[in-house]
Structures are given as C-alpha cells and as structure tokens.
C-alpha cells in the first residue's frame, strides 16, 4: 500500500489560515489502512483544527467526508454537489488523491494534509516499512524476493558495498543491509551460486520515474 503520515498540525493550520470554511476529505484506501487518512483520522484532524482555531478566537466550519478512494474519478465526483460551498479542500489521501481533487475541482485549492512516504507494508502494529520504488522493471525473481533498489541504500545491483557491517547498513545501524538479506535468502533457496556471480548489467531506468511521469494504457479495458 501507499504509506503516508500526517503533516504537523502547525503546518496544516498555516496552510488553511486564510480560510474559515473548508472541506476535509479522507480516503478509505491505503491511507486508512496505515491510519493516516481514513474516517477516524478525518474526525481527529477536524477536531484538532477546531480546537486550535477556537483558542485563536477564530471559528472555522469544517465538513468531514471520507471517500471510498480519492484516486478514482467515480468517487472523487461524489463531492461535486457541495464542494463549491467551501473555500478549500484539505485532503488527507496520498498525493494522488490531493491531485485528483485539484484536477476535478479546479476553482478550489486542494491542500495536502499528509506527507506521502512510500510503498510498503506493516511489519507490526504501528510500524511500516518500504518495499518497492516502482522502478517499472521488477527483478525480484533474481534477488530472492528482496528488492535491491529499495532495500540497499545505494540501490546497488551487484552485491553489498564495503559499508555492510554485522548485517546492518552503513547509513543507519537500525537499517538492515539489503544485500545481506538477499544473500541469506538466495542461499536458503539454493540459488546463491548461480545468481550472485552473474554481473547484473546497467539498469534501464527509463521505466522508472526517470523516464518522466508514467502512464499505463490498457487497450483491452478501454471503452
């Protein structure tokens, strides 16, 4: 899922400072799962904003809505009937949701309430970790199911650098060395000998963000 976290309340208050009527929109997708932008977080943020404004002596009207998904026009359109009544849309979806709001409601500013962080998963309650950088050309079948692009701090493709120490990355003693993980996994799979010595050629990054904003068109699905 896309993992995000709330922006500091001070930053949000500054963003909405000039408004006294806002639409706060959550999303029931990824950001709800990672407890950053779902229904509960909408309620929590709305009440935090109201309290802060009250202490400033400036009331604010907030309408709270949580959509099924903010990355889908069908759901984004569900606020069409009343969006125009508000001075700004504060979205606590990922960056995709904020931009879809901006694209659909051109006359109203769309503001981000979250910092979209990465594609990852939950390791345990309250802990999320990055797993994919969306490079557009998956190599997980070659690396024991562990991504060198994401898990190695330098995205090295041919083994660990000289900074790997006791299974940890030189960047941070809390971070596992991605290549140590890959090597252990390849050994467990009996694939180490065949895989490790092969020199991985220079990667084509044009399928990644480096090729410019990406788009997928599925002709078989178009109407």
């Amino acid at each position: 899922m896309i993992v995000a976290q709330a922006k500091p309340i001070e930053e949000i208050l500054e963003m909405i400072d000039k408004y006294d009527k806002i639409l706060l929109v959550g999303c029931k997708g990824c950001v709800a799962v990672c407890a950053a932008g779902g229904e509960k977080e909408v309620q929590f943020l709305a009440s935090a904003i109201r309290t802060a404004r009250k202490t400033q002596g400036r009331e604010i009207e907030i309408r709270e809505v949580t959509l099924e998904r903010q990355c889908d026009p069908e759901y984004v359109e569900q606020i069409r009937g009343f969006a125009g009544d508000y001075q700004a849309i504060l979205s606590i979806a990922c960056g995709v949701g904020v931009q879809f709001m901006a694209e659909h409601y051109r006359e109203i500013p769309a503001l981000p309430g979250l910092n979209t962080s990465f594609m990852g998963g939950a390791l345990e309650q309250g802990v999320w970790s990055e797993r994919c950088q969306g490079c557009g050309n998956c190599v997980l079948h070659l690396t024991g199911g562990i991504c060198p692009i994401t898990r190695c701090s330098k995205s090295l493709l041919n083994g660990p650098c000289g900074g790997s120490s006791n299974g940890k990355c030189e960047v941070d003693p809390e971070v596992d060395c991605g290549w140590q993980l890959i090597i252990e996994r390849l050994k467990a799979l009996g694939e180490f000998e065949s895989r490790f010595m092969e020199i991985v050629p220079i990667k084509d990054w044009s399928t990644s963000r480096d090729g410019g904003p990406r788009k997928i068109v599925r002709e078989d699905m178009r109407q």
């Binding site: 701090s153 330098k154 995205s155 900074g163 020199i199 990667k203």
Partner: peptide
C-alpha cells in the same frame, strides 16, 4: 560507489546511483 551522503555535510542531497561500482568498471 562512494560513501552515502548521509555521512557528509549535505545529507539533504539527492543521490544518483544510476550505476554501481562494478558497472562503472565495465
């Protein structure tokens, strides 16, 4: 490949790592 920028005087920098040290040799 070089030390990660985390250690240096500009830890806010974007790194490149388009290729790795073995690929640089090649």
């Amino acid at each position: 490949s070089g030390d990660h920028q985390r250690f240096g005087d500009h830890p806010q920098a974007k790194n490149v790592y388009d290729i790795d040290s073995i690929q640089l040799i090649m």
